[in-house]
Design a protein around this nucleic acid. Structure first.
Length: 180
DNA sequence: CGAATTTGACCGGCGC
DNA sequence: GCGCCGGTCAAATTCG
């Protein structure tokens, strides 16, 4: 059921100008979700969710998976040759009761911080595959508790490592692989 | 017993 | 320079 409203927003890093939250995402614009059945899903499988993925009009190589060495390293902010070192991010807004949207990858949580103007914390995850430093953060809107914003950063350099015998996952993966 | 979370400390950037 | 803020690290703890 298309009860989900996926709002996509690709933003080039930089610092959020939005005084109101990290993402400029808004659902109240004209989201006429009639009603979303709040069936409690089992752990990692959500039925009603739409993920739309978009490719940001990329520019310079995003080869930023090489650097993630420990602390105090330029992980992300490279030199200032270009004033705009934008690392592509992809934000997904999803209606779901659970925060953990399973996209088939293995994630390791590495942080959690409270968000201003939001009573829910934001969680930071990393792909556990070696050499694949894809990050993602999950945040829940305080306005709509049912909305979960997931922000991906980077690209996976390895196949999905998960065998799911669920229809939902298969369908979901099809969505992932579809360019648009 | 190894792997994943938890959670406070820490760090760099920015505004004042 | 100092303090706030968003993001990350890492030791301790929990989980499988």
């Amino acid at each position: 059921m298309a009860s989900s409203q996926a709002l996509i927003s690709s933003f080039d890093h930089g610092y959020q100008d939005q005084p109101n939250g990290l993402f400029g995402l808004r659902t109240d614009d004209h989201h006429h979700l009639h009603h979303h059945q709040n069936h409690v899903m089992i752990r990692s499988n959500e039925l009603d969710r739409d993920h739309h993925m978009i490719n940001s009009t990329d520019q310079n190589g995003i080869n930023n998976d090489g650097d993630h060495e420990g602390k105090s390293s330029s992980a992300g902010k490279i030199k200032k040759g270009d004033k705009k070192m934008r690392k592509p991010k992809y934000a997904f807004q999803t209606r779901s009761q659970v925060d953990i949207l399973d996209d088939g990858y293995r994630w390791r949580k590495y942080g959690q911080k409270a968000v201003k103007n939001n009573k829910f914390p934001r969680s930071y995850y990393r792909c556990t595959h070696q050499g694949c430093n894809v990050k993602k953060q999950v945040q829940r809107l305080t306005k709509d508790e049912g909305v979960v914003v997931t922000t991906y950063e980077g690209m996976h350099t390895h196949p999905i490592e998960k065998h799911t015998d669920n229809f939902e996952h298969i369908l979901n993966q099809m969505q992932i692989y579809t360019p648009f």
